[in-house]
C-alpha cells in the first residue's frame, strides 16, 4: 500500500514555508491594522480578506498571470534564477502565501486589538520604544491568537487545492501536493488510494483544529 509520501512531504514543506513567511509579514501588517487610525485601513482590511471570498480559480488565475514569462515579476525571476516561476515550488509558495493571508492576519489583528491600549502607553512612558513594546508587551499578551493564526495558516495551506492546481499544475515532487494527489487518484478511478490519503488529511486537519481550540483563552483564564 502506497501512501503519497512525496506529496505529503511537499505539502508539509509548503505549509511550513507559508507559515514562516506569513508570520513574518502578517505580524507587522496585523499590528498596523489593529492600531492605525488611518481611514484607508478598511481598504487594506478588505484586501487581506479577499482570499476568503474569491474562488481559488480567480486568485490562481491572477497569480498565474503575474508569474508568467510575460509579467515583470516572472521575467525578473527568470532573469535571476534562470528558471520560470510558474509551475515551480516558489510559484505555489507565493500563491499559497496570498491565499492564506487572512488566516494569519485576522487572528493576529484580533489578538492585538484585545491588548489594553493603556498597557502599550505605560510601556512607552517607561522608555520602551514602539518595537520593544511590541515584543515585550503586545506579543506576549497575544500569544494564543498568534499561535492560532499560525496553526490555521499551516492547516489551510496543507488543504489548499484550487490555487495550486491553477498555478502549479501537477509536477510530482515540485507542485503535486497531497490534495492534488487525491484529485489525481479520483481522476484515475483509484478510489482506494484517494480514500487513504483523504483519511490522512482528515485526521491531520481535525488534530490541528483540536490543538487550536485547546489553545484559545477561556473566559476563566481571561485576565481581570
Amino acid at each position: 500500500m502506497s501512501l503519497d509520501w512525496q506529496a505529503l512531504r511537499l505539502s508539509l514543506e509548503l505549509a511550513a514555508a507559508t507559515t514562516a513567511i506569513l508570520t513574518a509579514l502578517g505580524l507587522p501588517l496585523a499590528y498596523w491594522l489593529a492600531t492605525t487610525t488611518w481611514r484607508g485601513r478598511v481598504a487594506v482590511e478588505a484586501l487581506t480578506a479577499l482570499p476568503l471570498v474569491l474562488p481559488p480559480t480567480v486568485l490562481g488565475f491572477y497569480v498565474l498571470f503575474a508569474l508568467g514569462p510575460r509579467s515583470p515579476l516572472g521575467r525578473a525571476w527568470e532573469a535571476v534564477t534562470g528558471a520560470p516561476l510558474a509551475f515551480s515550488f516558489e510559484g505555489i509558495l507565493l500563491a499559497s502565501v496570498l491565499s492564506s493571508l487572512p488566516f494569519a492576519v485576522q487572528p493576529f489583528a484580533a489578538a492585538f486589538a484585545r491588548v489594553d491600549r493603556r498597557l502599550v502607553e505605560a510601556s512607552w512612558s517607561l522608555g520602551a520604544s514602539r518595537v520593544a513594546t511590541f515584543f515585550r508587551v503586545v506579543l506576549p499578551l497575544s500569544r494564543a491568537g498568534v499561535v492560532s493564526g499560525m496553526v490555521l495558516t499551516f492547516a489551510h495551506t496543507v488543504g489548499e487545492f484550487g490555487v495550486i492546481l491553477m498555478v502549479g499544475g501537477n509536477v510530482p515532487g515540485r507542485t503535486r501536493t497531497v490534495s492534488i494527489a487525491i484529485y489525481d487518484h479520483v481522476q484515475a478511478l483509484d478510489y482506494e488510494a484517494a480514500a487513504r490519503t483523504s483519511a490522512l488529511l482528515l485526521s491531520f486537519s481535525f488534530a490541528v483544529l483540536v490543538v487550536t481550540y485547546a489553545l484559545q483563552p477561556r473566559a476563566r483564564a481571561a485576565r481581570a
Binding site: 489594553d116 493603556r118 498597557l119 502607553e121 505605560a122 510601556s123 508587551v137 506576549p140 499578551l141 485576565r223
Partner: peptide, 9 residues
C-alpha cells in the same frame, strides 16, 4: 492610569 494598567504577564 485608571486600574493602574500593570503588565498582567
Amino acid at each position: 492610569f485608571q486600574d493602574f494598567a500593570l503588565f498582567p504577564h
